[in-house]
Design a protein around this nucleic acid. Structure first.
Lengths: 225, 225
DNA sequence: AAGGAAATATGACCAATATCATGAACACGC
DNA sequence: GCGTGTTCATGATATTGGTCATATTTCCTT
């Protein structure tokens, strides 16, 4: 099992602010785990009891709505921490986490992370920064949900996925989502998402290869209203 | 001007975790201010340069959408701090703040609050807790925006205002919002908000006295789908 | 108290999106 | 390779909500 103090992944999250001693301590109590695509990492209402540091892969965080639909509220990727909020509010998770591809994660038990949060000011301030940025992002999502059409939101998601997760060698988006996932991100019916994807295809803004989507005209996609 | 170390408002926010010395220092550099109803506290894109501690009153935080509509993302009330996020991300504000009634606030300059955030662990952890809870709330708002009808969202807002801000002696909601504000909270056209309010009135779930709204049948309002 | 501006209210119509139905393509176990 | 379930696709139709037009009421100014 890798050692935290030598792990390069921590560069991308607040754990870079931990001291060498703290990292060695964490290293001794963490557990590594492989999570397969589609596997549930934790459920809504579950006591997470710690934090996941994502060494590789991507997962979706979603919340079940009263109408039975899952709303995806965030994607958490390689380099980020998963589960901080519930840790800090000391409540069960309000979200479900599901792996979107095969993942490699380290799990750090609650008590260990809490000890550092309450002793290492630089660390807790770093987490604070991440949260403040998340809140800003949430504001934007709320505004988009409230004010933009489904078509515009879907175009935005494609652009977002492209700029954040990049493309495969054939130019398709490297992150593979089902049409239902797309619907659950923009908050619409699966049929509507499919319909709009077909439409964007007809307008030559994107193309599809099976489930894979390729952006053909990024500038055009940005112009979608 | 009041002294922070004796101010009871701090009980309701993270400032309760500051030491007496820190409070005395803050007290010496803070400025008190009365803000009239409708007045802008800060604009989107403005450098806030500090934090407001709300001694009395309520304000709305909104963001201008590309379609020209203002989306209200949060209400901040007596006892809470305003402007923490921008302070922490060290960016200009992403939101506009406008007073919904006459307010009394204390403004604490950035450097002073930052000093405490970076020296007092209990204080920064308390702010962290508030933010984690805000994030949780944001998740709920995103899900509601994405999955619920305007009618349901508006009913929810009325219930929220009732349970959070209470009622006047005549039973009307103590917080007075324009129909446009209601529209900007639920993310709809003003006409739609007006229409739905009229409809709820016809169904005897609420009644109105001028701009004031009174909840007549809370249980019924909760049943709205 | 009068006049005018702003907020509230309502109707008519249209566009966006949901829902239901059905079929085609694909994926997987045997 | 063959069913069989799942995902993708598309049509028909219903519903929701947005936009524009126009009253009506409220509120503010003078």
């Amino acid at each position: 099992m890798g050692k935290c103090e030598q792990c390069i992944i921590k560069q991308f999250n607040a754990m870079k602010s931990l001291t060498k001693d703290e990292l060695i301590r964490i290293s001794g109590c963490k557990t590594s785990r492989i999570i397969k695509k589609g596997e549930v990492i934790f459920e809504e209402g579950e006591n997470i009891n710690g934090v996941y540091c994502i060494k590789d892969g991507i997962c979706k965080l979603s919340k079940l709505s009263e109408n039975g639909k899952d709303q995806i509220v965030k994607m958490v990727v390689k380099g980020q921490l998963l589960g901080q909020r519930s840790l800090i509010t000391e409540e069960v998770s309000n979200l479900q986490a599901v792996a979107l591809n095969d993942m490699e994660v380290c799990f750090i038990p609650r008590v260990e992370i809490m000890a550092d949060l309450q002793n290492n000011l630089k660390f807790s301030f770093d987490v604070l920064k991440v949260m403040a940025r998340d809140l800003r992002e949430s504001d934007d999502i709320i505004v988009n949900m409230a004010q933009k059409t489904v078509r515009k939101r879907l175009a935005d998601v494609l652009i977002y996925l492209h700029s954040n997760f990049g493309e495969n060698t054939d130019g398709t988006l490297s992150i593979l989502l089902s049409r239902e996932d797309y619907a659950n991100i923009v908050g619409t019916a699966t049929e509507s998402a499919i319909r709009i994807i077909s439409q964007l295809k007809k307008e030559n803004l994107i193309s599809t290869k099976g489930k894979y989507i390729k952006i053909e005209d990024l500038a055009g996609l940005k112009r979608v209203e």
